[in-house]
């Protein structure tokens, strides 16, 4: 059996700066050995541990779809004091880094079959939701799901990531896209205000629907009651959590919320599950 602490080595194929502040970058990675890409079998919502050798490891949500056959990508925000995120941001294309995973559970794609899907994202935490949307929109999958409504917000237009890709989605007829910012600039033509308020205004139907929510804690906190008011049951509101992690495999004891380890029992939880856990996250 493989050593669960030993990373694959992967090469950075492309680096994209995603925001105006330039502290969010997307890294497109390719495996040294294509057979390893096959082995790295994941579903949207899962994460992996990225390592820069000498700096350390960080858990990062997988931002690409499993149906993106050749590469796998991650969008990383650099923190001023963050050792690994800074080291990642200092990497250049062609450089080799480490990748361990995939880890954790994923969005409940089976439960989502045949249902309308409401996706609520904020800031750079939209990464695994982007993976999900890419998956849902794939020509081999799209007809398995109902209507898709995507809400996405950030403080300013410059902080919305994946802008180009999202505008191609907005141009499609099989997904409805609602973008919002707290502080618009002159050229902004879409919604203004916080995400939960836009969700309430647009009021997507809750019958035969499931909602996926991922974003800054404050956005998640206020989106949940907004969705409940629209009639979404707690079992039908799904979110993804973050806790400080090390091992990613349920051993190091770090990422617990109550008796659940976010790394192996999560990161995806329904609001119904979260309501049963200690409120310590």
């Amino acid at each position: 059996m493989a050593d669960p602490y030993l990373p694959y080595t992967v090469t950075i194929r492309k680096i994209t700066i995603e925001n105006a502040a330039k502290d969010i970058k997307t890294f497109e990675l390719v495996f040294a050995d294509p057979a390893q890409r096959q082995q790295f079998d994941f579903m949207p919502g899962q994460f992996a541990q990225l390592s820069v050798f000498g700096a350390g490891e960080s858990p990062i949500g997988i931002a690409s779809s499993p149906l993106d056959a050749n590469h796998i990508s991650f969008t990383v925000k650099k923190y001023p004091t963050g050792v690994v995120t800074t080291a990642l941001h200092n990497c250049q294309p062609h450089q080799t880094i480490g990748l361990r995973g995939p880890f954790g559970n994923h969005y409940p794609l089976l439960d989502m079959l045949g249902k309308d899907i409401v996706i609520v994202g904020g800031g750079f935490a939209v990464t695994t939701l982007r993976a999900t949307i890419r998956y849902l929109l794939h020509e081999s999958k799209r007809s398995d799901f109902g209507k898709i409504t995507f809400f996405y917000g950030a403080r300013t237009p410059g902080e919305l990531v994946y802008r180009e890709e999202i505008s191609t989605w907005a141009a499609r007829s099989d997904i409805e896209v609602h973008l919002t910012v707290d502080h618009p600039d002159e050229s902004w033509t879409q919604h203004t205000g916080v995400v939960p308020a836009v969700v309430t205004k647009i009021a997507p139907a809750s019958s035969n629907s499931i909602a996926l929510v991922c974003g800054p804690p404050i956005m998640v906190k206020y989106s949940i009651p907004a969705l409940k008011d629209l009639g979404f049951a707690p079992e039908r509101i799904i979110t993804s959590l973050e806790m400080r992690m090390k091992c990613g495999i349920g051993k190091c004891g770090r990422c617990n919320i109550g008796s659940k380890y976010v790394c192996i029992d999560g990161p995806v939880f329904s609001v119904a599950e979260l309501e049963r856990l200690p409120q310590e996250f």
């Binding site: 390592s51 050798f53 000498g54 700096a55 090390k246 770090r254």
Partner: peptide, 22 residues
């Protein structure tokens, strides 16, 4: 008690990843 930390120790491009009790 079995909680641990994982950290890299490196000098001049070589090093090791270690785990330490936490």
């Amino acid at each position: 008690c079995h909680c641990f930390d994982i950290a890299d120790e490196a000098k001049n491009n070589t090093g090791q990843r270690v785990r330490n009790w936490d």
